[in-house]
Design a protein around this nucleic acid. Sequence first.
DNA 1: CAGAATCCGGACTGTCGGTCCGTTTCGATG
DNA 2: CATCGAAACGGACCGACAGTCCGGATTCTG
Lengths: 188, 188
Amino acid sequence: MRSDATRNREAILRATEDLLATHGAEHISLDRVAAAAGVGKGTLFRRFGSRTGLFQELLAERAAALALAIESPGSPLGPGSPPKERLLAFLDELAELAQRNLALFAAHERACADDKYRDPTYLRWHAHVTALIAEAGAGGGEGRLDAEFAAHALLGSFDADLARHVMADGGPARLKSSVRGLAAALLA
Amino acid sequence: MRSDATRNREAILRATEDLLATHGAEHISLDRVAAAAGVGKGTLFRRFGSRTGLFQELLAERAAALALAIESPGSPLGPGSPPKERLLAFLDELAELAQRNLALFAAHERACADDKYRDPTYLRWHAHVTALIAEAGAGGGEGRLDAEFAAHALLGSFDADLARHVMADGGPARLKSSVRGLAAALLA
DNA sequence: CAGAATCCGGACTGTCGGTCCGTTTCGATG
DNA sequence: CATCGAAACGGACCGACAGTCCGGATTCTG
């Protein structure tokens, strides 16, 4: 990739963040992003392919640290810890990420409304949660849990609108504790 | 309301259903709906206010029977039955509704993407599920459940994309049983 | 059947995602 | 440093679509 290309890529990403922070997740047209980045619209599309691609990459960037933490041993998040603890730690971290990036989450959701199950970041999270639920052997009792499905439902907790709604009435702490409660109940 | 108004209202609703059945939930522009209904676009907007309004009313219509069943005693759905049983029966019925109206659910979701928590039908469902979860006194053990939150998560199971995704690999039966499993685990 | 209230229709507007292509910039080479 | 082809740029342009507006047609009332 040519140096100007790299520079522009970065400019676009940063401009998107700025707009996301300034205005909400709405009314962020790609024309606006391009203008804010001091770049032509064509450039934006060449780099990211589509609106969807732009927000997917931005989310991937913000989620990189978490992706790393998942795989490196040593923390309650990483391999080695018991699955239940690992799951709760992961969800905690995800809640933190969501509350620090509400606008991005919202924009990302809208942009990926179609085939949201093809977003690489979501896919990673889902695979991870599914594995942990299965590993924890939940639902041995009466209802035998569908791990894949339960993982989707659990990740649904981080829907931006839901998160905003919950945090509007109970503060950031409520999201975390509610998700914890849900997960704990599932694994019980 | 004048008689032609009533007639047109019905024509629009039926045309929307047809388009939803024929093509998927996508590419259903309001121009198309109006044309299919043999009506001007202005009429459509006067009747339903917006795209959102149209799909909300259509969903409300399809959900009317369920809303009735919830309130009338005699079935496992109605008042009088134990909350857990009532919840499971409700979710079963909702799964049925979802799988018979996948396209409508999808279109409705897209249309209500903003403030989906203001849709009257969803609100009814949520209030009902919240009440049942609370009544069942779930999570008395370790994690104490946030009933309102759990209800949102549970209803998230009927996201059209998730439902389609799950049913594509496991048939319609899987959706029902997975939701049951989830709910059972929550109430355990 | 006449007058008024109500409703109709479709042309019109503004916005936005995405495309296209003539022009500019980069950087490898001699 | 001059040259040249490849790579990237930018912004005019397009098609689609939600929503508005108002002159004209329809329906009700008495």
